[in-house]
Amino acid sequence: MGPFLEVLLGGLLTGVLYSLVALGFVLIFKASGVFNFAQGAMVLFAALSMARLQEWMAPTLGWVAFPVALTLSALIMMALAFAIERLVLRQLINQEGIILFMATIGITFFLDGFGQTIWGSDIYEIDLFLSKDPIFLFEDVFPGGLLVDPYELMAAVIAGILVAVLAVFFQKTRVGRALRAVADDHQAAQSVGIPLNYIWLIVWTVAGLVALVAGMMWGAKLGVQFSIALVALKALPVLILGGFTSVPGAIIGGLIIGAGEKLAEVYVGSMFGGGIENWFAYVLALAFLLFRPQGLFGERIIERV
């Protein structure tokens, strides 16, 4: 039982990290119907600025460098959202979804390249001031207890807070309601006086901040390097499972994918000679598409008969 739970828990915690990335996709998709291919690049960009700013200021400021770098990175992500809205989205208003999607592919490559040009392309570290030693949980329940990575535990807590805040924001606030209105019907939202530009600015800012949190956690775990951008690819099966429009779906999808791939690797992997962790999630997503294309929590397409 012990080893099983340990694999499960490890998987769930990794899943939370996938969820953090998937959240960014959901936010933008919900509010503008655009699949933002650049989310992975935003995660990388945010992580790079965080790592380099912290590294740069740490010798003089010590631990204070962390909150300062975090604030500056948040401001950078806001500026980025502003620039994307002004220079790309505003110009493409009223274009087809596929054109906006192509535009986000362009943004992806720009951010990947530009980020590494200004911040450098080595592997950098983000110091979250957490002990590198794993924690043992439930030592009195299981022999040896459960081995848990403190970074992942921290990520889980942060993701939980983030989701709670976003849920309240979407369901209870005026701007959140406007965001959902825009997601349902652009034109009608405009007709009642909701300015699209403002709404887009807000979602891209929020998605940028979520990318910063995700980038920080992934960066602290793996080191900040180009491969972080590829983590976004793992968010795709999460989205398919959870539904493109659901914030809780992104979280639960992440948990299922995270736990599923670890368990599959350990218990089924040997049948295939191992290494199924990398593609298991996609197969799961494919199977899901066949039976429930809107995902577990995606909004059903309402069609009146």
Partner: peptide, 23 residues
Amino acid sequence: QVMEGRHCFGHLTVEENLLTGAF
């Protein structure tokens, strides 16, 4: 303008729809 074909926000409740008008 009240658009042709209603254009309500389908996934919002009736009350939320009304509230968007007060944005």
